[in-house]
Design a protein around this nucleic acid. Structure first.
Length: 420
RNA sequence: CGGGGCGUAGUAUACCGGUAGUACACCUGCUUUGGGAGCAGGUAGACCGAGUCCGAUUCUCGGCGCCCCGACCA
């Protein structure tokens, strides 16, 4: 991609009403546009990050047997009434609207009711199970107060998966595979070491649910962790009973601030019973389907990565989600055709080797280019200038470490393709 | 939903009961060219409505919107 043609430019200052680090940097760098409180549009750079995160999640979900679908944004009132969750007093984040033909619809803030109902059309025999489906959906939630930039909005992209199993044993097997899949996701986006499978309130069906909490200074949750025993407990369930159940004492636990990036939930057969989802077993008996739900906040995860890795100069993306792998920065190319030709050549070589490159071909001063490059946060900056031309090697700077090296074009291609 | 704050160019800000100044960005020209350059010129702004007043961007009221703290977060 040529930066001179890229839609969105950087800016020096963030809007004054934007306080969170993630939104300030993402707006300054041109990744997102704020439409209203808690509602953000994703621009070309931001969308590439979202898609990269989705790709990782998709791969891991497919690995454990998930099949991708897309449910509807508009939802039926009657389904949510069956589970007593249509009432605003019960669910306080509903957006609702009137149909011109009469009646009401809800805007999807979650999808377990519609998906359980839908499954009645496709599940009739024990032979039809298990089923695991997932989607990437824009959830709409009428939050009273949006905050923390893209991490808690009224509209956000979430991956939600739903499992439909024969019974508890089946369910538990998948549930545990899902935990492993989530671990791999968080590992791959670079927060594996700081993300904990956390015991949280389980609701009506089980003692606990599991949240995935990532340590970050600006996190909204408080979690008690023990790294050695690999135990984490959300403060909402930190009590003597929990400690005894998990076999830890309070003084073995460290209090940390975390952000919830994922959540998995066991519904048991409650939803299926409420909505009439059952199958016939091999004796011809009707048995309710065992359900679970599994969420990852895609855009929240993106915000978390900014919060966690950014430095005073700007964003620092983990390689796995960066919108481009390489920021090719050409200095003085407008006046020196050799420099420009060299940059063009390197761009062609890298691109055809499958390396995503953002080429800063703009005719602006070096200082501005470096500042922008730091702000954008691409993993590897390659500088082409009269200096590097004379030296016969390109200057390579890693954004995360600042480590600088000098490489020839063949060394570069070898290095980058070995890594992809 | 309780409490607090705030709405002035694309962005950030200043001043003011007599129609608004600066910086960045943007446009033109010249110079400059490895860490957000310099000079000159230019484009561009008072959230909406009502009231008070000779006169309102400024004061009052209402609306709309934004931010922060708390509550909430299945």
């Amino acid at each position: 991609m040529l930066q001179s043609k890229l839609f969105t430019k950087t800016r020096k200052e963030a809007p004054k009403d934007e306080v969170s680090k993630n939104a300030q940097l993402l707006i300054r760098a041109g990744y997102v546009h704020k439409e209203m409180a808690g509602v953000y549009a994703y621009l070309p750079l931001g969308l590439r990050v979202v898609e990269n995160i989705k790709k990782i999640v998709r791969e891991e979900m497919d690995k454990i047997g998930g099949q991708e679908i897309i449910m509807t944004a508009l939802q039926r009132k009657d389904l949510w009434e069956k589970t007593k969750r249509w009432d605003d007093a019960v669910v306080d984040v509903w957006f609702k609207s009137e149909l011109k033909a009469g009646g009401e619809v809800g805007f999807g803030w979650s999808h377990e009711e519609p998906i359980a109902d839908m499954m009645r059309n496709y599940v009739s025999s024990f032979r039809d199970l298990p089923i695991v489906v997932y989607q990437f959906q824009t959830k709409l939630r009428n939050e009273l107060r949006a905050k923390s930039g893209i991490m808690r909005g009224k509209e956000f992209v979430m991956k939600d998966a739903y499992s439909f199993s024969l019974g508890e044993e089946d369910h538990t097997t998948f549930y545990n595979r899902s935990i492993d899949a989530y671990k791999r996701v968080f590992e791959r986006v670079g927060v594996g070491d700081d993300t904990f499978v956390t015991f949280a309130s389980g609701g009506a069906f089980t003692q606990f649910s599991h949240e995935f909490q990532t340590i970050v200074d600006t996190g909204e949750d408080v979690t008690y962790i023990n790294r050695e025993k690999n135990i984490a407990i959300n403060e909402e369930v930190l009590n003597d009973e929990t400690l005894a159940t998990l076999g830890v004492t309070r003084d073995e636990l460290e209090e940390v601030k975390t952000a919830e990036v994922g959540n998995i939930f066991n519904f048991g057969v409650q939803k299926s019973e409420d909505l009439g989802l059952s199958y016939k077993n091999d004796k011809g008996e009707d048995v309710p389907v065992w359900m679970g739900s599994y969420g990852i906040g895609i855009t929240r995860l993106m915000g978390l990565l900014v919060e966690k890795f950014a430095d005073d100069k700007g964003i620092v993306w983990p390689e796995s989600v960066a919108p481009f792998r390489v920021h090719l920065v050409e200095l003085g190319g407008a006046d020196n055709t050799d420099v420009h030709a060299e940059a063009a050549e390197l761009y062609r070589e890298l691109t055809s080797a499958g390396v995503p490159v953002l080429w800063d071909d703009r005719d602006v001063r070096a200082g501005e280019k470096f500042a922008d490059s730091d702000l954008l946060g691409l993993p590897l900056r390659i500088v082409v200038s009269e200096k590097t031309l004379a030296a016969g090697k390109f200057e390579c700077v890693e954004r995360s470490s600042g480590h600088t090296s000098h490489k020839s074009i063949s060394e570069l291609i070898g290095y980058l393709t070995a890594h992809v």
